[in-house]
């Protein structure tokens, strides 16, 4: 088992390296630079700025230096948000994004599987159709439509909850953003659970259980254990994406997470900020893929001895 984890960990490193390299050069070949303002700066000032941030060096040297710094955990200074290092910016935003993301994932897992199991046990009933309808709505209605609609309904019309703001993570403030983040995931998880449960309930080994007089509870337990495997594979990368923030939700609800830095950073050519965000996201993705692999091996004995 330890060997298994170690292997997964080692095989993640080259992927991370490729991702960092690819994004570094992609970012650099893009036209424009971090100090291109509406009013062009004086050539002298521009030169000084470039020198101060090491942008006058050959690209390959900058790349090498970035990698070295990265190894020691240094993500460099931000070009655009002056006087802050990228690490500081990300560390400040990450707790916000992670709070929202983890709550959303939890909600999606609990509500989604429950809905899916209920629908699968009452296939083609009214309850089933309601779950399918809800799930289709969840995946089709984009979050930038749901978010303002919720603001109108719960914030303005009913005045139950604030329309935005972080407020140090007060429960009232995070309810709407968490629900908006979770809705599409609830929908997907419910659909997947329903589909795999129906398949599992029709399987030969569930027929065996029934032929041996095992009750409904045992049958659901067995079917669910098989059904949970594909859901985990889906939730791995999704969790990584949610924990590293959502541009839309953070923008609409005015939350200080890290989701926005991709957009802001890329548009302002804030090289280090974008790179920092890419690195954080990539680490999360690889980490969660690894967690999924390990959980998979724990839950499915056939994988363990592969």
């Amino acid at each position: 088992m330890v060997l298994f984890v170690l292997r997964r960990f080692l095989s993640a490193i080259p992927t991370l390296f490729v991702v960092v390299t690819l994004s570094f050069f992609l970012m650099r070949v893009a036209p424009g630079g971090p100090f291109d303002l509406e009013q062009p700066l004086e050539a002298k000032i521009m030169e000084n700025l470039n020198r101060a941030f090491g942008l006058d060096r050959p690209l390959i040297e900058q790349y090498g230096r970035y990698l070295l710094n990265l190894l020691s955990g240094d993500l460099g200074p931000s070009f655009y948000i002056r006087d802050f290092s990228v690490a500081e910016i990300l560390l400040k935003g990450l707790p916000v994004s992670m709070t929202l993301g983890s709550l959303a994932i939890l909600l999606a897992l609990v509500v989604g599987t429950t809905l899916g199991v209920i629908a699968s046990l009452r296939q083609n009933s009214g309850v089933d159709y309601a779950v399918i309808g809800f799930a289709t709505a969840g995946v089709t209605i984009p979050n930038f439509v749901v978010a303002p609609l919720f603001q109108i309904i719960f914030g303005l019309m009913l005045s139950w909850l604030p329309v935005g703001g972080w407020n140090n993570g007060a429960v009232r403030n995070i309810i709407l953003p968490v629900i908006v983040l979770a809705l599409p995931q609830i929908a997907v998880v419910a659909r997947m659970t329903r589909a795999s449960m129906i398949e599992a309930l029709r399987s030969d080994h569930v027929r065996t259980l029934r032929s041996l007089g095992m009750g409904q509870r045992v049958i659901v337990l067995h079917a669910l254990r098989g059904a949970i495997l594909p859901i985990m594979s889906y939730l791995g990368p999704t969790a990584a994406a949610l924990l590293t923030g959502s541009v839309v939700v953070e923008t609409i609800f005015g939350l200080p997470g890290i989701g926005r830095y991709f957009v802001e950073g890329a548009l302002n050519r804030d090289y280090t900020l974008v790179m920092g965000t890419v690195v954080v996201v990539a680490i999360f993705v690889l980490l969660f893929n690894m967690i999924v692999d390990i959980l998979y091996a724990l839950l499915d004995p056939r994988v363990r001895y592969e």
């Binding site: 399987s203 030969d204 080994h205 027929r207 065996t208 259980l209 032929s211 041996l212 067995h222 254990r225 098989g226 839950l299 499915d300 004995p301 056939r302």
Partner: peptide
């Protein structure tokens, strides 16, 4: 009364001992 089936490969739950 009990029953055994044709497919020994799929009649047992693969995730339980």
């Amino acid at each position: 009364v009990t029953m055994i089936f044709q497919e020994p490969m799929t009649s047992l739950d693969p995730l339980f001992t």
